[in-house]
Amino acid sequence: MNSRKLPRKKNLSAMRMLGVQLGTARRAAGFTQRSLGERLMIDEETIASIEQGRRPLKPDLAASLDELLGTKGMLSAGVANLPEIDQFPLWAELYVQHEREAVSLSLYASQVLPGLLQTEQYARAVLRERVPAYDEDEIETRTAARTGRRDVLHRKTPPTVSFIVWEPVLHLDIGGAHVRREQLRHLREYSELPGLSLQFLPLDSPSHAGLDGPFILLETPDHQHLAYIEGQRGSQWVSDPSEVSILARKYAMLRTQALTPQESQRLLDRLLGEQGEQRTSVVHVDLQR
């Protein structure tokens, strides 16, 4: 995988410049964003995102636009000279935009629960662990943004979503016993959502296809398959089909190694039962004092 990264501003400036060129050519040809999208059988929002530099223009679409708008290969040449999407750092706002529009998401987590599954208290506790520390105002702002992302799971037509989480994550006591218990309840509730699969890779599994770390697979509305890898000091998109395929195969193997969704629900029930017993035991001891 190509890990070379280019400065964010350079990449986004190039994408915005190409978007401006597309918008200028579109208007000169007498198209609105909607009519152009209808002509190409793609969403109006896709055209808008490309023109605003929020979404990269792909070679096949650039070729179609050159032909339709009479730009004589200008857009294709611009795409050919853009940095590859794999090469620029993944910034949260770009990922969230793709997440909001995705038709499918597959997420493997091994360190902390995915943001889409976090309760407000759990998210706040996770953000408080950041080094160097956020101030309280920033923690509240980021907590609201993170929990707001859950709306994607409650859309009228939600994406198809699969989560695989390594079991040790469930035993982390981040925020204390109460936060953990409410988070487990939340997971159990979300495990019942239509179109959502929640599986846990058990601690005693003899096989583990995710030892290289967490990652996300994403399918866009125009059926582009991307992967997202986030690390300690940077993140990156992966768009090369062969590289995305490797991660997709890892995810497929993880699904066979993980508990089934039904077994995963029973694991949550057991953990919630154990926490309830511990709480009852503490109250009983306190009453004997």
Rank of each mutant, 00 (worst) to 15 (best):
D286W: 08
R146L: 14
T160G: 07
V161R: 04
A62Y: 03
N2W: 05
T220Y: 05
L226C: 07
P241T: 07
E192C: 07
A14W: 00
P168R: 06
L105R: 01
I164M: 04
K9D: 14
A102R: 01
Q33D: 04
R39D: 12
E44M: 05
Y251V: 01
A252N: 11
E101K: 08
G23A: 12
L40V: 07
A123G: 06
T119W: 11
W237C: 01
L267H: 04
R4P: 00
L247D: 07
L267D: 05
E167C: 08
Q199V: 10
K156I: 11
Y251F: 15
P241E: 09
W91P: 00
A62V: 06
L12M: 10
D66I: 05
D240C: 00
I85M: 12
D86C: 03
P261H: 04
T32G: 00
G176R: 09
G30P: 05
L203F: 15
E84F: 06
Q33H: 03
G73N: 08
M1S: 12
E230L: 02
T141W: 06
Q288Y: 02
S281Y: 01
L196R: 01
L198F: 08
S197G: 00
F31V: 00
Q232T: 15
A28C: 01
Q52P: 01
R124C: 08
T256N: 10
L203R: 10
G176Y: 14
L94M: 11
L203E: 13
M17W: 00
G37N: 05
P202S: 02
D286V: 06
L68H: 05
G273Y: 12
W237H: 09
E219L: 12
D269C: 00
G19Y: 04
Q275N: 06
P241G: 07
S235Y: 06
Q121F: 05
E44A: 06
S242Y: 13
G234F: 14
G70H: 10
M1R: 05
Y108I: 10
L107W: 06
T119E: 12
T119K: 09
D66Q: 03
A77E: 11
R100Y: 04
F163S: 01
L94S: 14
Q118E: 14
A102S: 13
A123K: 09
A145I: 09
A29W: 08
